[in-house]
Amino acid sequence: MEKEKNSNQKSRRNFVEQGLKFGLLTAASGALLAKVFGRSENPESAETVELMSTDGTLMQVPASAVSHTHESKSAYNPREGFPNRKFVMVVDLAKCRNAKKCQSSCNKNHYITGENAWIKIYKMQDSEKSAPYWQPTLCQHCDEPACVKVCPVDATFKRRDGIVLIDNNRCIGCRFCMAACPYSVRVFNWSDPWQGEAVEQAEYSPDYAGVPSQKGTVDKCDFCPHMIDKGELPHCVSACPNDVFSFGDMYEDTVTNGSGQSFKLSKLLKDRAGYRLMESLGTEPSVYYLPPSDRIVDFEEGLKNYTEFQSVDKPQEP
């Protein structure tokens, strides 16, 4: 697994370097990247597209030199994932003021009707004398996922692009994965989710979790492959008014936040001393956190939004 990842990464890097040498960049994922930046131009009509090279410089490339490998769901297998990608997220704790827009957007777009949201913003304080901070927590899409290891029926699976998904048509509801996940991110449909007819009738695919949810099976954050597929950012990333989240591709070494700013991942993690949750467990998460130091936000401000016993807005019972 590890080896494969490395060699993949290396061959990809070689490929890009060579491309640059010839002054031509034809990486299909590059085109997608441009879209992820939120400046997606139609390659047919525009003259050039803006791409970022591996060392972080932006460049203009003729649109005709860019081809697309996949446009729609039919082009990829939801169990396998997008080829040659490795998704990663960065959560900047210094910016989080518990606005909870990520949570409400996720709840809305995944039609979460249970009591437990998939993203939770924890009120954290590591030790008595250190400062409290807000920590948005979602599935860490671990590279050594404890949940996948224990699933008896391969209902929870790891894709090549790093995303961990659940096949709700296969899950037997044993909840072993929930016991195994150290980040408590998995939720169970204890009763019928009652998501309304439109959602319940929708065609199910594991890469759009919650559409529809199923009684007696497990749900969790899916890293929004259905958005990536459209060239857009996951719901939480674009919903955050404070640019806490950035999302991107490890192979491209780039992450983009909700306002469309891009960063070089390796530099960002180095400059800001990024870390992952419970590194010692060996789960190898795909989500990095930037420590809540030099904060421009006031922790207290978030308290007014803090609801200890609620994370999903419930419509009034009829």
């Binding site: 008896p152 029926v153 209902a155 037997i172 509801g173 044993c174 909840r175």
Partner: peptide
């Protein structure tokens, strides 16, 4: 009795994965 989807018990045989301690138990 503990399973959320007892109707899918058969998946344990159709899709059983040897890595899972549940399969060892079965």
């Amino acid at each position: 009795l503990d399973m959320g989807r007892p109707d899918r018990v058969i998946n344990l045989f159709l899709h059983g994965r040897l890595q899972s301690p549940i399969i060892w138990d079965v």
